[in-house]
Design a protein around this nucleic acid. Structure first.
Length: 570
RNA sequence: CGGGGCAUGGCGCAGUCUGGUAGCGCAUCUGCUUUGGGAGCAGAGGGUCGGCGGUUCGAAUCCGUCUGCCCCGACCA
């Protein structure tokens, strides 16, 4: 490709509404342009990257025996009503009506459609297992789209769905997909980690997420330094504390705490520490009413864990200030377990506190030296909190550390959830009809591009891994206008690279060298060759890798092979 | 959904308080010069100041309303 024929508007200035580095660089390098909130145009340079990611995914999915198909983005409501998700999914599901007032949705995922395909096409256990996949546009009406294509409303996803006669077969394919995903992210040149995860509203049992490690990641993941345990913090178990609750010591006493609502305010006001305070959250119960959840002051509630507590409404819904007032007689900020008029569940670590500080259920008042059993009933105990740095690993070996990650892939064992709901059956060896077992496996293709940038950049711009660079090589001729030799030589080189099957960008613009260097670095082409009068006399070309600060002289006649050897393309 | 902020040329911004001919930098176009790290000079084009309504002799500016976008929050006990 000749740069002169490739309209590319790079920006010197950072667009005002881009927060994270990948979003800024994607806009500055002209990979994407915003159309509306959460909706992005992929410009030619960006599409080249996107296609490379897709190509790697296709190759590895095909190698794993998966079959590519393509399902419509728009799906009839009936299928979602069959699975029960028309009600369940909530406002993230974009619902539309056609001209006949028939209801549809723009698919956020395709379990319903694929299960419909499976129940029509698959009749016999002999046809199983089968794994279908597609690379297709999804729409999720996010509450707050942000970070460019990292959390956009419309995005491209590779989604795969496998069908099985039994659980063993499902587990087997799940493992194959786990390995396939590892191969894919390795080939993409990303630093990633597979972690235990919650299956969310897709449903099912076993599930793992693949995270690209990056400080800007929206998810926190916990991993052990003792073995290879890794999990999303929302699911990593925080088991019973090995501490024993101390015997009640001091007498309980109220203390006036005007306008002291948060744990932070409380600890500074009472000169204590958060791990000696108890916070009580009121949430809606599964059958109406409220349920109290008690945590140590320095711990965070895991919404995922709370939703699994029997008696707690799922999805989790915090009580409104009005509900809190009705039950406790005070506003949020002063809730406590003493004489509390609703069921209470305490986190393991909260249940072993003694002589703790908590709200008094009286406006502007807290209690000191409160003790379970003495001042309250013995609490029901459960795992409610997110793990924190330094917690013991649930496997028993090592300590947990917390890192941030960007979720780029997710694999699930769905079991029979959809096949039972929608009647997707096959006939088994005994001639009996059985509901098929399912697995499902997703990769956020557009998000992968952003994650790759998030992990590979410097102050000058993007540094593409070779596997997904929009071009492998950029040729920068010096003084193109004046030097006939440079012109001829760069043209020749350009043709040679094309012949050799390398993707090459020839910067034939009549621009000053600084402009060309800056653009080459911003758009992140891994291999750069400068063609100037200087080198030509000596029969050398000047090479620099995007990651390097130094030039390297390469003999003219070896350059094509040199790039091939260094770009992983041979 | 709650709170806050913003909306002026393709991008980044000033001007709004205190109403009076719409401005700056970058980008774009033309010409000349320049050509190893985002050039210089000279000129040019491009804006119904988000929409609608109001106040006024006069509105980017004041008032009302709508829309769009961004940020924060939805973990506060």
């Amino acid at each position: 490709m000749r740069f002169s024929q490739f309209p590319l508007n790079t920006l010197k200035e950072v667009p005002a509404d881009a927060e994270i580095i990948s979003h800024q660089l994607m806009l500055r390098a002209g990979l994407i342009r915003k159309l509306a909130s959460g909706l992005y145009n992929w410009m030619p340079l960006g599409v080249r990257v996107l296609h490379k990611v897709e190509k790697i995914i296709r190759e590895e999915m095909n190698r794993a025996g998966a079959l590519e198909l393509l399902m419509p983005a728009v799906q009839p409501a009936e299928l979602w009503q069959e699975s029960g998700r028309w009600q369940q999914y909530g406002p993230e599901l974009l619902r539309v009506k056609d001209r006949h007032q028939r209801e549809f949705c723009v698919g956020p995922t395709h379990e319903e459609v694929i299960t419909d395909i499976a129940r029509r096409e698959l009749r016999s256990y002999r046809q199983l297992p089968v794994n279908y996949y597609q690379i297709q546009t999804k729409f999720r009406d996010e509450i707050r789209p942000r970070f460019g294509v990292m959390r956009s409303r419309e995005f491209i996803m590779k989604d795969a769905y496998s069908f099985h006669l039994n659980e063993d077969s499902m587990a087997q394919t799940y493992q194959v997909m786990h390995d396939t995903y590892s191969r894919i992210f390795t080939r993409l040149g990303l630093e990633f980690r597979a972690v235990q995860a919650d299956s969310g509203n897709i449903g099912g049992s076993m599930s793992q997420e693949f995270h690209v490690l990056a400080d800007s990641g929206e998810d926190a993941i916990a991993f052990s330094d003792g073995d290879n345990y890794a999990a999303n913090v929302e699911v990593a178990p925080a088991g019973p504390s090995n501490r024993v609750r101390p015997a009640a010591g001091l007498a309980r006493e109220p203390v006036a705490t005007p306008d002291v609502r948060t744990i932070e305010q409380l600890t500074s006001y009472l000169k204590t520490t958060a791990d000696r305070c108890l916070k009580v959250l009121l949430v809606e119960g599964a059958t109406g009413g409220l349920v109290a959840l008690a945590l140590r002051g320095d711990h965070q509630l895991s919404v995922t864990k709370a939703e699994k507590i029997p008696g707690v409404a799922s999805p989790l819904c915090m009580a409104t200030p009005e509900q809190v007032l009705a039950v406790t007689g005070c506003e949020p900020g002063f809730i406590g377990p003493v004489e509390l008029n609703c069921p209470l569940v305490a986190d393991h670590s909260a249940a072993v506190l003694g002589d703790f500080v908590c709200g008094a259920n009286i406006p502007d008042t807290h209690l000191q030296n409160v003790n379970w059993g003495r001042d309250t009933a013995e609490p029901e105990v459960a795992d409610l909190r997110e793990v924190v740095e330094g917690d013991p690993s649930p496997t028993g070996t090592g300590t947990l550390h917390i890192a941030r990650g960007i979720e780029v892939g997710h694999i699930f064992q769905l079991g029979q959830k959809y096949s039972t709901a929608m009647g997707a059956k096959v006939v088994d060896e005994q001639g009996q009809e059985v509901d098929m077992y399912m697995g499902c496996y997703g990769i956020g293709v557009t998000r992968v591009v952003a994650a790759a940038i998030e992990q590979n950049n410097d102050d000058k711009g993007i540094i593409w891994p070779d596997a997904i660079a929009p071009f492998q090589v950029i040729l920068i001729p010096m003084n193109l206008a004046k030097s006939q030799r440079v012109r001829e030589e760069s043209e020749k080189l350009y043709q040679e690279f094309i012949q050799a099957g390398l993707e090459v960008l020839l910067d034939d613009r009549d621009a000053r060298p600084g402009v060309k260097f800056a653009d080459a670095e911003l758009i992140g082409i891994p291999h750069r060759i400068v063609i100037g009068e200087r080198g030509l006399d000596a029969g050398k070309l000047e090479y620099r890798h995007r990651k390097s600060d130094d030039n390297q002289e390469v003999p003219r006649e070896e350059i094509v092979q040199f790039i091939k050897d260094n770009s992983g393309i041979s």
